[in-house]
Computed example of a mutant assay.
Amino acid sequence: MSPEADATRLRTARRIEEEYDAYSERVYAQATGTVDPDPQHPFCLYRLIKAGGNIQHVVDAPDFADEVLDHMGRGYREEIASDEDGTRWVSRGPEAADYRAAARESAHIRSQLEARGLIPPRAQGQAGGFGITSPSSFSRTEPRPDPDLDPPPF
């Protein structure tokens, strides 16, 4: 936890971003068929770059659990459905269990980072910021269509 460590992480994250971009281009160039490939971006890479390599800023962001939810494949998404109505694309959104799972995973990530000394431990009684919020400027996903769906208390 230092400015030097943040700078090192930022350099590493930018190198990984370059490698990911090259990988993604190769995957798209080799794709066949009618469905685009989906080379998943590294978890929180763009957030870490935007935060200047500071991991604490990433996990303390009020919408960090949104990123976790999306990375778990439980965020808003389009899926192919095939049933008695035919084959079509349908929109799916997270349910209460998905929000709870993302909150648990967010807390687990934080505890692992604390245990490794990469972020300071929270003060006793300090509330965690693992809520689900509106779409973030970091996210590359579509806007959340149901603002009335509140996540359950954690």
Rank of each mutant, 00 (worst) to 15 (best):
S2L: 08
P3R: 09
P3C: 04
A7C: 00
A7G: 10
R9F: 04
R9W: 07
L10A: 10
R14P: 02
R15N: 06
R15E: 15
E17H: 10
E17Y: 00
E19H: 08
Y20F: 14
D21I: 00
D21S: 07
A22M: 01
E25Q: 15
E25F: 03
E25W: 06
R26N: 14
Y28M: 02
A29R: 14
T32C: 01
T34L: 12
T34Q: 07
D36I: 07
P37E: 08
P39E: 01
Q40G: 05
Q40Y: 09
F43Y: 15
L45P: 07
L48K: 13
K50E: 13
K50Q: 12
G53I: 05
G53W: 02
Q56I: 06
V58K: 08
V58Y: 05
V59T: 15
P62M: 00
P62A: 11
F64Y: 11
D66H: 04
D66M: 04
E67W: 11
H71K: 10
M72H: 06
G75E: 00
G75H: 02
Y76F: 14
A81G: 00
S82H: 09
T87M: 14
R88H: 11
W89M: 13
V90F: 04
G93C: 00
P94K: 00
E95V: 10
E95W: 04
A96W: 11
D98Q: 03
Y99A: 12
R100D: 07
A103D: 02
A103Y: 12
R104C: 02
S106D: 02
A107F: 02
H108N: 04
I109C: 03
R110Y: 09
L113P: 07
L113S: 01
E114L: 03
R116Q: 15
L118Y: 12
L118S: 11
I119Q: 07
I119M: 10
P120N: 03
P121I: 01
P121L: 10
A123W: 01
Q124N: 04
G125K: 10
Q126N: 05
A127V: 08
G129Q: 10
G131P: 01
G131Q: 13
I132A: 07
S136K: 08
S139H: 01
S139L: 00
R140E: 13
E142D: 14
E142R: 15
P143E: 12
R144D: 15
D146P: 02
P147H: 01
D150H: 12
P151W: 15
F154L: 08
